[in-house]
Design a protein around this nucleic acid. Structure first.
Lengths: 131, 131
DNA sequence: AATAATATCAGTAATCATTACTGTTTTGAT
DNA sequence: ATCAAAACAGTAATGATTACTGATATTATT
């Protein structure tokens, strides 16, 4: 209904996200692209991140630190958030979709998805806190 | 270091939360208490909810709808969020703590917690959408 | 019961992430 | 080359939350 037109800003935002494994926020994307796009608008970054997330080309991560993070890896996987440094890290783990079956056992609605974030102290923070 | 003093506003906020199973937001708490506390301040509600959450007397739920919900039931349990009506519903389900072990298998940090929210269509919305 | 110290309050202003608006520029089809 | 509309930059507005300020309430001490 609303044909999508090309924009080099959107392409740059998606390309940038694909080069990163650290799940940047909108503001990080904005600041990283500013050298190449001196008059890029923060609103453009937000609009395109929302659009790409709606299209399913990226993931929007609400990790609970007050600002959304984004991930160009849309394959099913989970995330860990370090309670100390705040970094968001991919987890390599087997699937746990059976938790939806467990959750649905005594529930009269339809469960069709879940989000899970793991918390704790990341490897780097573990090392640096050893005396 | 900072001795806690009694306040009837804080007591009322906690008491109110204990009467509810629908996980109200700060604004809902505020509006529900206004008849009894005509000059209650929204800031007071926010401050006390944050304080109670820090003390572990209530849970802060970041369900992803942009505004935090609160729960006076601090026993371990999970939540379902209806994608249609937005209601937050307690789930009665067995424990799934083994997902932390699964997540930790190929991870070099320490995992000490997780949050999981289940999404879908609640029982009421399922019924009302049947023609 | 009066006093003093300070936690808490009400009311308001400020902050921060995000979204909406407006007039201009780009895109893509004719 | 022309035109409709998608997208833009820049800015204003929104909404949830937090911080500030001077007044009030609570608690311990006299």
């Amino acid at each position: 209904m609303a044909p999508l037109k090309y924009s080099k800003q959107r392409e740059a935002i998606l390309d940038f996200l694909k080069t990163r494994k650290d799940h940047p926020t909108a503001d990080m994307v904005y600041n990283s692209l500013r050298p190449d796009f001196p008059n890029l608008s923060l609103g453009t970054v937000y609009r395109n991140l929302a659009l790409l997330a709606d299209l399913g080309e990226i993931l929007r991560l609400r990790v609970g630190d007050g600002t959304d993070h984004f991930d160009a890896d849309v394959s099913p996987h989970y995330h860990f958030i370090c309670s100390e440094c705040g970094s968001v890290i991919d987890l390599e783990m087997g699937n746990i979709d059976e938790i939806e079956d467990i959750a649905g056992m005594n529930f009269d609605g339809q469960i069709c998805g879940h989000v899970t974030y793991f918390y704790g102290k990341c490897g780097a923070c573990c090392k640096s806190s050893m005396s």
